[in-house]
């Protein structure tokens, strides 16, 4: 089995102070680095400790994480079955015409109906039904819930996102708030045209009903550095990343090695303390910069100059 660094190795001892109310952990990455291993590390930690995790992805399907998790010795399907993991798939059907829950686990047949023409008003009447349906379907057969905004997302279609909220609330009603991992929020802004304030509001709402929220976002300089010629696309992305960065309790950022290409280094992992309230509760995120290397044998993090051997 390939080895992954544990969250406390990454975040320092203060990680143990993390599982509190509405913590926010921001993970940023650039093109060419994949933050998946950080996700697996966090999931592994939470799931083996028996915590409930709600995992939302707008850019990958469950099979992707299933395969990746398997490689790192993380059996996501069994956690899914046990109910400790809830996967909300905002990727597979996000812009497909809302398909009723028919054979969702059989991909090849799933998109047979979308041949139907694209009618903008379609989102309206269907929305309420859709919000109910994934839930009922989820409890009965398919543990994966789907978000579908339809081919031309209207503001009313955003109610689809409530499935995240209701899932969290349902899990939280037992007393312990679940953890939340969201990947690909940028898709909502960039592709679905959702206003950045709506997304930020959504994050705040979700943080209230979850314990630790982990958000993964791309942070390429192209997307963050705004100039007078920036389009709303870049401005709203920068807005989202920066505002989340300012409220986060810790920021993990992955980037490529500044000096170019190295054979035994995949990139740089930087841990930064956010402006959040972690300090008040005893834990302090130790700010540091480490190198990481992803290989067949797993991921290793090591200090600069230690060679990683």
């Amino acid at each position: 089995m390939s080895k992954l660094p544990t969250p406390s190795e990454i975040l320092g001892q203060s990680f143990h102070f993390l599982p509190q109310e509405s913590q926010l952990l921001l993970i940023t990455s650039v093109l060419g680095t994949s933050p998946s291993w950080l996700t697996y590390s966090l999931l592994h930690h939470s799931l083996t400790n028996g915590e409930n995790v709600v995992f939302v992805s707008f850019i990958n399907e469950f099979a992707y994480f299933r395969e990746g998790g398997k490689r790192h010795g993380l059996d996501l399907p069994s956690h899914l079955k046990k109910g400790t993991l809830t996967f909300i798939d905002g990727f597979s059907r996000l812009f497909l015409p809302s398909a009723p829950s028919q054979a969702p686990s059989l991909p090849p047949t799933a998109s047979a109906p979308p041949r139907v023409g694209v009618i903008p008003s379609r989102g309206g009447p269907i929305t309420p039904r859709q919000t109910q349906q994934p839930q009922s379907a989820a409890t009965s057969t398919d543990p994966i819930k789907y978000i579908s905004l339809g081919p031309s997302p209207s503001p009313s279609a955003l109610r689809q996102l409530d499935v995240i909220k209701s899932t969290l609330q349902k899990l939280g009603s037992t007393g312990v708030k679940p953890k939340l991992v969201i990947e690909g929020l940028e898709v909502l802004i960039a592709a679905a045209g959702v206003d950045v304030r709506v997304v930020e509001d959504l994050v705040y709402d979700l943080r209230e009903i979850s314990s630790t929220t982990t958000i993964l976002l791309p942070s390429d300089s192209v997307l963050l550095q705004t100039s007078p010629s920036s389009t709303p696309l870049e401005l709203s992305h920068a807005n989202l990343v920066i505002s989340l960065g300012h409220t986060a309790d810790a920021i993990l950022s992955l980037r490529l090695l500044d000096t170019g290409v190295a054979k035994d280094i995949s990139g740089v992992l930087k841990v930064t303390r956010g402006a959040g309230n972690l300090g008040e509760t005893g834990g302090i995120v130790e700010e540091k910069e480490m190198l990481f290397y992803e290989s067949d044998a797993g991921v290793r993090i090591f200090a600069r100059g230690s060679g990683g051997h």
Binding site: A63, L94, P108, A110, A190, G193
Partner: peptide, 19 residues
């Protein structure tokens, strides 16, 4: 952006669906 990226996102989901 919304048109193009929606299209590309849908293509991406199609590649997974018909992988």
């Amino acid at each position: 952006p919304t048109h193009l990226l929606q299209f590309i996102h849908t293509l991406r989901s199609l590649t997974r669906q018909y992988s």
